[in-house]
């Protein structure tokens, strides 16, 4: 086997120039795995606590309404929309559309921008309300 050592070994993570399509792809895995564990466990805990009775549920509610828990809620909201938007992008690409370089790049950027915007639109009023409630 003769190989020109001047040529890069491919595929290799370090020699790719990052683009929107790669970022959106790894975000899909990260948000999917994150929700699978975090949202999955919270969902089961929430339902199990509710089924066990008022005492078990009040423990859940105390943790879920803690200040630090809001970081998790906001993170899950963003993860949900990120995974959902990119899932829709996948449906389009499954049909064989949207592979033109410019279109693909633009859609990937939109798929990253929309979830951030939606998260902001949902949480800004809630956080503003909470902050004003604490000030009283």
């Amino acid at each position: 086997m003769s190989r020109n050592p001047g040529r890069p070994l491919s595929p290799h993570l370090t020699i790719w120039r990052w683009g929107p399509a790669m970022a959106v792809s790894i975000l899909h895995r990260a948000t999917g795995a994150g929700m699978a564990v975090v949202a999955g466990l919270i969902f089961v805990w929430w339902l199990t606590a509710a089924a066990m009775g008022a005492d078990a549920y009040s423990t859940f509610l105390a943790v879920a309404s803690h200040k630090l828990a809001y970081v998790v809620w906001i993170g899950l909201t963003w993860s949900f929309f990120q995974h959902l938007c990119n899932g829709l992008r996948h449906f389009v690409m499954d049909m064989g559309a949207g592979y033109e370089l410019k279109t693909n790049r633009m859609v990937a950027i939109v798929v990253m921008a929309v979830p951030l915007l939606l998260t902001l639109v949902i949480w800004a009023p809630i956080l503003a309300k909470l902050a004003s409630g604490e000030g009283e």
Partner: peptide
């Protein structure tokens, strides 16, 4: 194990509540 146990716990809890098993 995680997927099956998680779904089973969730479904059982929903049914218990829905069938009036939780005051």
């Amino acid at each position: 194990f995680y997927a099956i146990a998680g779904a089973a716990l969730a479904i059982f809890s929903i049914l218990k509540i829905a069938f009036g098993g939780v005051p």
